[in-house]
């Protein structure tokens, strides 16, 4: 009986293991699979990401140069970024912030060749 005593005393003397979350946030690990971002100026709209995505949350319209992504359907597996032929799809380290409404991320690219002087737009 009472074998837990030493453990609870140790806990009392040490810092708590929990964090006051929104106030203190642990930095993400380097390898963490966070939000999917597409540099639409580099994207070639090849559509490989849309084909490979296991949750089919990406749709690519080649003619209209539209790339849309449903973050609430995404499972964060990172396959799309892995298979991306142009290297425009990147998986960020940080998670997407919570939102009040489900919404699609729709990115419109230029149908003309990419201009590298523009600042990259991320979504």
């Amino acid at each position: 009986m009472f074998t837990m005593t030493s453990t609870i005393l140790r806990n009392l003397l040490k810092e708590p293991a929990t964090r006051r979350y929104p106030a203190s946030v642990r930095p993400s690990f380097e390898a963490a699979r966070g939000e999917i971002r597409n540099d639409i100026h580099v994207c070639t709209f090849c559509g490989v990401c849309a084909v490979k995505c296991p949750s089919q949350c990406i749709t690519v319209d080649r003619k209209a140069a539209d790339w849309s992504y449903d973050p609430s359907a995404c499972v964060q597996c990172g396959v799309c970024a892995e298979v991306c032929t142009s290297g425009s799809l990147q998986q960020a380290r940080d998670y997407r912030k919570p939102v009040r409404k489900k919404e699609l991320v729709v990115l419109k690219g230029a149908t003309t060749p990419p201009k590298h002087s523009d600042p990259p737009v991320t979504g």
Binding site: F29, A31, A32, V75, Q76, C77, G78
Partner: peptide, 19 residues
């Protein structure tokens, strides 16, 4: 358990569904 999940996240990117 949190330590193990941290290992998972640091090495694979996700805590539980490591893919």
């Amino acid at each position: 358990r949190e330590k193990i999940l941290d290992i998972d996240e640091a090495t694979t990117g996700n805590r539980i569904i490591v893919s």
